[in-house]
């Protein structure tokens, strides 16, 4: 199963450690993750269900460039990282 890793910045709402999810797409993987960890949803998706603009998703080391591409296929052994863009100040 694909595995989702969520940034430690969300440790106050996210489960500790990576989570395997049963899904074939990025959107499906996130939905499966949110089913277990519902509080994380609003931190990753906006109220229209889109990836937040400054949330970065890497799938197998590759940055997801099209933030709207929640239908992006993921492989059974994919590693999905949900990070935040860096900021200063």
């Amino acid at each position: 199963m694909p595995t989702i890793h969520v940034t430690s910045h969300l440790r106050h709402v996210a489960p500790a450690g990576p989570m395997p999810v049963d899904a074939a797409t990025l959107g499906g993987a996130l939905d499966a993750y949110f089913a277990t960890a519902p509080r994380v949803r609003s931190y990753i998706l906006d109220d229209q269900g889109r990836l937040r603009r400054h949330v970065a998703v890497f799938i197998d080391g590759e940055l997801l460039l099209d933030k709207k591409d929640l239908g992006r296929r993921v492989a059974p052994n994919s590693e999905i990282y949900v990070m935040q863009a860096l900021s200063g100040g």
Partner: peptide
């Protein structure tokens, strides 16, 4: 307003 992670 958490910026990256939206309004709470």
């Amino acid at each position: 307003n958490l910026g990256h992670f939206g309004a709470k």
